[in-house]
Amino acid sequence: MAASKKLNGRAVAVLATDGFEYSELTEPKRLLEEAGAEVTVIAPGDVKEIKGWKGGDWAGSVPVDVRLSEADVSDYDALVLPGGVINPDKLRTQPAAVELVQAFAEAGKTVAAICHGPWTLINAGQVQGRKVTSWPSLRQDLENAGARWEDREVVRDGNLITSRKPDDIPAFAQAVIEALAA
């Protein structure tokens, strides 16, 4: 069906490292690819794959396509930040990861974060005065950083898309697809 390929020619970066919530990377990636987007996994360091987390234990690995140090914002139309507790907590302390998020935002490109992914948005200075959602435990962190937190499956505020949890992945991916197809 032609509608399923409405993102042909669009490129999406996924920034993650070990400890990402497995479904929050693999499912949006699959859905975006089904819609025709080229999805590239970016990770810090010199690694060939990163390990996911699921149900309190390590899950499968995902191949890394581009090193964070080599990522160029101009190659992509959007950035996706999966959650998991470990992944965004590591990323938000890495200057290159924070700078990449800032560069996407400053370029006016879609930045989408799910679950604990908005932690990295805080460190990148991207939530002040913005409507967002997240995993409930991040609510106070986001509000303390100046965000207006809402308990909804997807919150879109301009180029920023946020979502709460794995159950929200279909709506999250659809919001990214709609933003890129516009």
Rank of each mutant, 00 (worst) to 15 (best):
V111A: 10
A112H: 03
V98T: 01
K48H: 13
L100E: 07
A103Q: 14
V62S: 07
I86P: 03
L68I: 12
R92H: 10
S69C: 08
L81T: 11
R67I: 01
H116D: 13
R92V: 04
E106K: 12
A107Q: 10
D46C: 07
G108P: 03
A105T: 09
V85P: 01
T93G: 14
W53E: 11
V64P: 06
A71I: 06
E70Y: 03
D72H: 13
G55C: 04
D89H: 12
G83Q: 05
A105K: 03
A97F: 01
D72S: 15
C115Q: 05
G84C: 07
D57G: 01
E49H: 09
G108F: 04
I50G: 08
G36P: 00
L68N: 08
V47H: 00
L81C: 13
A96Y: 05
N87H: 08
D72Q: 15
H116M: 13
P82M: 12
K48N: 15
G84W: 02
E38C: 03
P88Y: 02
I114D: 07
D75P: 02
A97T: 02
V111R: 02
T93P: 02
S69H: 08
L81A: 09
V101D: 04
D46N: 15
K109S: 08
V111N: 05
I42S: 10
V98E: 05
E49N: 13
D75C: 09
V101T: 11
G52N: 06
A43K: 05
P82Q: 12
Q102E: 14
G56P: 05
T110V: 15
L81I: 15
V47N: 00
V47Y: 05
E99H: 07
V101C: 09
E38G: 14
A71K: 05
G83M: 07
